[in-house]
Design a protein around this nucleic acid. Sequence first.
RNA 1: GCCCCGGUGGCUUAGUUUGGUAAAGCGACGGUCUUGUAAACCGUAGAUCGCGGGUUCAAAUCCCGCCCGGGGCUCCA
Length: 619
Amino acid sequence: MKLLLIHSDHFEYEVTEKTNVAEEISEELKKGKMEEVLACFITVESIDEKDPDQIVEKSVNEIEDTLNKVNAEGVFLYPYAHLSQDLGSPEVSVKILKRIEEKLRDNEIKTKRSPFGWYKAFEIKCKGHPLSELSRKIIPEEEEEDEEKGEEKRKVESKYFILTPNEREIKLDNLDQVKEEEIPTGTLKDYIYSEELEKKSSEKPPSVDSMRHLEIADYEEASDPGNLRLYPKGKLIFNLLEDWSDEIAVDRLDAVEIDTPILYDWSQPDIQEQGESFHERHYRVFPPEKDDELVLRFAGDFGLFRMLKEAILSYRNLPLRIYEFSKSFRYEKRGELSGLKRLRTFHMPDIHSFTTNLSQGWKEYQKLFKEYDDLAKGTNIEYAVVFRVVEEFYEENKDKIFEMLKYSDKPAFVEVLSERKHYWVVKHEFQGIDSTKNNTQLATVQLDIEDAERYDITYTTKEGNEEGCTICHSSIGSIERWMYSILEEAHKMEKPKIPIWLCPTQIRLLTISEDNLEYANKIKEKLKEEGIRVDIDDRNERLGKKIREAEKEWIPYIGVIGDDEEKEDFINLRIREQEKEEKFEVEEIVELIKEKLEGKPNRKLPLPDMLSKRPKFVG
RNA sequence: GCCCCGGUGGCUUAGUUUGGUAAAGCGACGGUCUUGUAAACCGUAGAUCGCGGGUUCAAAUCCCGCCCGGGGCUCCA
């Protein structure tokens, strides 16, 4: 237990808001104050659970001691989580706090307590004399000895490595003093600096502005913060990314697709349990003519796990891959929202693979890794590979991890945990790096050996026994976040570019005068027949201006059509990638573009193909 | 949620320090020009200065509260 004791003229608090672990309290506990008081900020730690009685006794002695020394008139107990990284469970903590309060009262000390698990505002006036601020650490007897020997029991320790595709394992002894030459590539280095070493950049990501100016996404004041609107071009990019996610899940992985409700009854214990394992708060919905409270789902797992719990599974059915493209809602704190990067409503494609055991699960894991790697490469964004793995599993399966790295041809940052402390034994993340060098988590795969039991998802073995599944969770990450990463990747370039298969307009034809319109239309029809998104700037404007506007839209190919072209049947093509102009025939252009669209989803132009007919959504 | 910064026609901004008729460019609309590789010319319309309250003879400007956006912190007591 950690104690912070402050001898104060005045101490006062008032509850502001509940947390997930809030204790039920009466009206009178909602505020309180005291004068000439010893304010005790208390943090119950996990080791205290070994011997709560002893902890209570020791802390009461400590508080009384200090009280007598400073001559305060009373004690104010204030639960305060911020003194330790290693907190005790809420239940035990409340128990300990209440018993300290009782004991002090028994000893005829004027005592008050503020409630556990609430956000509170407080005021304090510290006296400032030498004894007025004290901190104390209290631990159970047997632990004390261990501490003295320098043994930290039950603590999960992390070791860090860099693994390279050519099977080198580089140990990073001291993460704070990583030498530059130890980290092989720029992207991985950027990730380590941004996330692991917490050297965040404080620039505004340029996509926050460009998502609006490119008419992709925008804020909607009439909604809740973090709920964006998509313009036609944004919706197209969204749809294409969704198509691609569908294709990987359904066509390449043979996953079966399902859909489940977005609203759930909060009184269901399994829903609440999942709610607590997520730290995010959620939207609450109160239907008319009913007392129930519903929640908007904050992950796709709810409905799926319930479906699978009821399903009858045999070992013959496994591995079973299930795909769901779901809308999720997380009530993120206000200050955490940012552009397309962090939202309160977003879309997640999830694939869960239900398997018989760890070894089948691990095979699924590797398969998913490779598919997601293909997908990530198709968007041309830079990403770092980060593994987190329990030590025992790591030692046994290092070779397979190297195999995956060979596939992605990237080095990885690996955190090896001495023991399992989460539901997974191994997971990895693809971490995107934005143009301000901050990281964003994209795809993840997690091998889960706990949830099947927790949610009672079982199958029948060959021998006729019922056993829990091993679940492989995975997601490419939210579509919105991919849009963010793709825009940010563009901003890293001198001339921003997004992959051609995602460009709303792939080629724009510019007419020099209205006489060229008929010829331009013929070319447009030919390109359109080939499934290329083409439009014509038919407005009565000068060429320079049409060029300028097309460039500002990041259009990859701009074809100029005037009298010369019409006479000799060619197009003057301005290629963004190469920053040059060249004469092309229509067939050559078709070939050039189609080659780059190979294997990617396709959709038609999301707006009228004549610019004169097209509205402006953002000035 | 806390702290810092910002919000002025659809867009980009000036004006706020020192209170005194809201200013410009782009865009839209009408017209002239028939245009050759990053902004033609003339004209017209368009602003509850984020919202609400206060101070003042007078508020975009000063004060208070709220909303929205950005960044940082916090992200279970």
